[in-house]
Design a protein around this nucleic acid. Structure first.
Lengths: 333, 333
DNA sequence: TTGTAGGCGTTATCAA
DNA sequence: TTGATAACGCCTACAA
């Protein structure tokens, strides 16, 4: 078997044409004599010629790769994010370079370095300092996902204001008194905005919000930890509003582990509408957000070759009322 | 601000030296006159010169990148895998290209293409056909993680045989009669081996195993689905052995949602020992596997420049007995 | 339509 | 130690 050392020149030689012609054929250029094309194609096939990314990248000054930077969290949200992004990138022939272990306090050097190896970068809200972001923008096209555009070229995010309606629902429709919020507003832009919407709903309803959110991460285990803090305290809340479904599930597990009934003893809501939300008992009241679209839109913006990408895209969300807020009294294991 | 168009030649010019010297300095080569080095460094600093990955890659014939291929699953396991891999890769200055949306029935073309953009690839067991794997091996160094070496250059996996001891524990120490297995042996090498170990333990104990596993995926929602199938049937099992912690949690949620008590009414075990395992009530009996080490070892093997990497690395695992199998009767919410 | 020649930015080789 | 010079593999004017 021929090893990968076969080059344009060699193919040209074997096919009795010039390297230029091979290049044209290999990239499906028009304007090539069918006979020659056929001859070249056969040699390519026969010897398994693959244009070198090295040479191509250098000549075209294009990496054919997109970067994806986010805080290394587990869970359905990020899995969906990666996959959506990747599928879209593949669509345009781009590869995906990920930086999943990046937290804001890391040195920015890593992400700057990444910028030198890609044609565009997607930065998840809250993972990179504004200073670094600005530097990045001077190097490649940058799209912020789930965050403010800031110095970036564009941004794509979901409409977190649904959290306001959801909170109002709890406050007004159900008449719950003491609400708690689980999630760290400093952790990500999404949580910041959701916490603000939570506060705003209280204000509109002329009700006093909790002084502080329960500052934990976004994983299921964080929800369990929050439940411990919330339910073992003096005044447990009547309803717990969680920054995402995972923590909501965690809180629910914690509550049930204490023998509490949801929603009778305590109401719980999430955000995302991931698969588990409709599978638990009671099923989870939440806000549905189009995670996949968030990812694909971002990738599309990045791959777009037009001079300037759209400014800020806002994706719609939808409140999904189910059992865990008390809207149905079926189930309640 | 100077745009990124500054090259070696330009720096050389500005510093009054040759491009070769700039190259030597930029790469920290020894044998450079301190005076010149200083002069060059200042110019580099001043103009923000960054060696182009294009040029460097072509000249060194080295991408400076590693590929990571796995089935796009969510959950702590894969999150840990990515991060561990990435951290180790960063250690050697490599970037990480991921292919997370690859399922076995995809065209192999995608993964073959990836091979042309990296110096080495980590393939998660059960994601690529043997034919494709063989082809890949002719292009780059390939290490299989959590799977058989096969045609690959090396493999790293964990010792799944602990599943045998765990099953024996359920069968003999606890004396459970009917056990069920949740997980699809065809889905991944790990599950294949765990199912086989489950069967082997039955054989050794001279007990009849279930005819079939409950063939579901590895996510929490799959566990809920399995619970439905298992618990709503005629003869619910006395103990459910799950292929991983996530599905175990799902089964537990399903069981509790039906008002069943764990482990009194039904025992449940997992595999992984992820954070949630010790947080639920009752806490989860499981097998601890070193996921991070799995990832870092793989990355290290890939980055290793020595002629041939080690053959097959086997990482140890450890049975962790907790409440969900019936070993402690505290808790049991 | 095809071929020739030069350039993309860096590193490697070999004299000096 | 330093500096010309030649790859590295491909693409793309430009000329034929």
């Amino acid at each position: 078997m021929s090893n990968g050392k076969i080059t344009v020149r060699r193919v040209a030689e074997l096919a009795g044409v010039s390297p230029a012609t091979v290049s044209r054929v290999s990239r499906g250029s028009t304007h090539v004599d069918p006979v020659l094309r056929e001859r070249v194609l056969r040699v390519i096939e026969e010897h398994g010629y693959k244009p070198s990314h090295f040479g191509r990248a250098l000549a075209e000054r294009r990496h054919g790769a997109l970067g994806l930077v986010f805080p290394g969290l587990s869970g359905p949200y990020f899995a969906e994010l990666i996959q959506g992004f990747e599928v879209q990138a593949l669509e345009t022939g781009d590869s995906v370079l990920v930086l999943a272990s990046h937290s804001r306090d890391d040195t920015d050097a890593t992400v700057i370095d990444l910028a030198g190896r890609v044609d565009g970068m997607a930065i998840h809200g809250g993972t990179v300092s504004d200073a670094a972001l600005e530097k990045l923008c001077g190097m490649v096209r940058v799209v912020v996902m789930a965050g403010d555009t800031g110095p970036a070229h564009a941004s794509v995010r979901v409409d977190n204001s649904s959290m306001r309606g959801l909170t109002r629902h709890l406050l007004v429709d159900h008449g719950y008194r003491r609400l708690a919020f689980v999630g760290n507003p400093d952790g990500s832009t999404d949580v910041t905005v959701r916490w603000e919407a939570f506060l705003a709903a209280h204000k509109t309803a002329r009700r006093k919000p909790p002084k502080e959110p329960v500052r934990v991460g976004l994983q299921q285990s964080d929800g369990v930890i929050a439940a411990k803090q919330l339910l073992d305290g003096d005044e447990p809340p009547e309803a717990v509003v969680c920054a995402n479904d995972e923590t909501a599930l965690g809180v629910m597990i914690g509550a049930m582990g204490r023998g509490l009934k949801v929603p009778d003893d305590i109401a719980i809501t999430g955000f995302d509408d991931m698969p588990m939300a409709s599978l638990v008992n009671p099923d989870l009241t939440t806000v549905r957000q189009p995670v996949r679209e968030l990812a694909t839109t971002t990738a599309r913006l990045l791959a777009d070759r037009s001079p300037d990408p759209a400014g800020a895209v806002l994706l719609p969300t939808e409140i999904v009322l189910r059992g865990s807020c008390g809207c149905r009294d079926g189930g309640g294991g």
